[in-house]
């Protein structure tokens, strides 16, 4: 067997051990966030960028104290942005906040009900960000043509949805994901829609390079245990993909045990 440690994920010239990327939203508190992320084994952790609260408790704990950039690769995202301009400004602020850090997650939303990506704005923002030297991981629909265009612009990873953000509906269109994976020269990471560990495993078995999730862990009854389940699901799916599954035989069974050498039926003096 090939050394599993050698099977690293490469993004923007850096390698990562874990193929599970996690968000930091919807947890009870920073302590739970930290414990769940540790259980997930994730190296890359995504955070949102928001206005600092005016006139509120200035001693409010900072997320980056719980998830220090010295221990995790912080992936600032543009969640909540509906225009290319807002997304670009948000990531410029993030780069300043994180002292020149260039790996970012771009998402430009189309409407607050479905949180479906606005592809026109996404493409525009991606062009600007790539030109400014960002390493852009981009949330997109599962449209193979759009995925290819984002790759050609220079995004370091395309991240199609498996189903709507926060829906937990799993992988609704594995065929589109397969087309995207087969055409891609950059890592394809399923972002959004995973509900449980088998969804993560299926994404990886399809040949995805990684899975990014938040709600599936944070909204589980026991987030820490689910984080561990997701780690194992991603690892199992990746190994199954690399191992190469057996071919399906639709209309004939194939015994696992030798066909010959079974004992004979009892003749005559039956008990």
């Amino acid at each position: 067997m090939a050394n599993p440690a050698a099977d690293a994920l490469t993004l923007g010239g850096r390698t990562y051990r874990s193929r599970l990327l996690v968000g930091t939203g919807k947890y009870k508190d920073h302590a739970e966030t930290r414990t769940a992320i540790e259980a997930s084994g994730a190296d890359i952790v995504t955070v949102a960028i928001r206005r600092s609260n005016i006139g509120q408790n200035p001693n409010e704990p900072n997320l980056l104290d719980a998830i220090p950039p010295s221990q995790f690769t912080i992936l600032p995202n543009t969640a909540g942005c509906y225009t290319a301009q807002d997304a670009v400004r948000t990531l410029r602020l993030a780069r300043e906040l994180l002292e020149g850090h260039s790996l970012v997650k771009l998402e430009v939303l189309g409407d607050p009900h479905t949180l479906y990506p606005n592809i026109v704005e996404t493409l525009e923002a991606a062009r600007v960000l790539v030109k400014e030297g960002f390493h852009v991981m981009v949330y997109t629909s599962d449209d193979p043509i759009v995925a290819k265009q984002l790759e050609e612009i220079g995004c370091v990873s395309v991240m199609p949805l498996a189903s709507l953000i926060g829906s937990g509906m799993g992988i609704l269109n594995p065929w589109n994901l397969r087309i995207i994976i087969d055409n891609a020269k950059v890592p394809v990471i399923v972002d959004a829609g995973v509900g449980t560990a088998s969804d993560a495993a299926i994404a990886m078995e399809l040949g995805c390079d990684g899975v990014l999730m938040n709600t599936a862990i944070a909204a589980a009854r026991d987030p820490v245990r689910m984080a561990r389940a997701m780690k194992l699901g991603v690892e199992a799916g990746r190994d199954a993909f690399l191992a190469g599954r057996m071919p399906k035989k639709l209309y004939s069974a194939s015994p696992s045990s030798p066909v010959g050498g079974t004992i004979a039926p009892v003749q005559g003096k039956a008990a």
Binding site: G23, I74, T90, T215
Partner: peptide, 10 residues
């Protein structure tokens, strides 16, 4: 002016 921080999100 916009002053921002990192917060939990996905």
């Amino acid at each position: 002016l916009e002053i921002v921080v990192a917060v939990g999100g996905g």
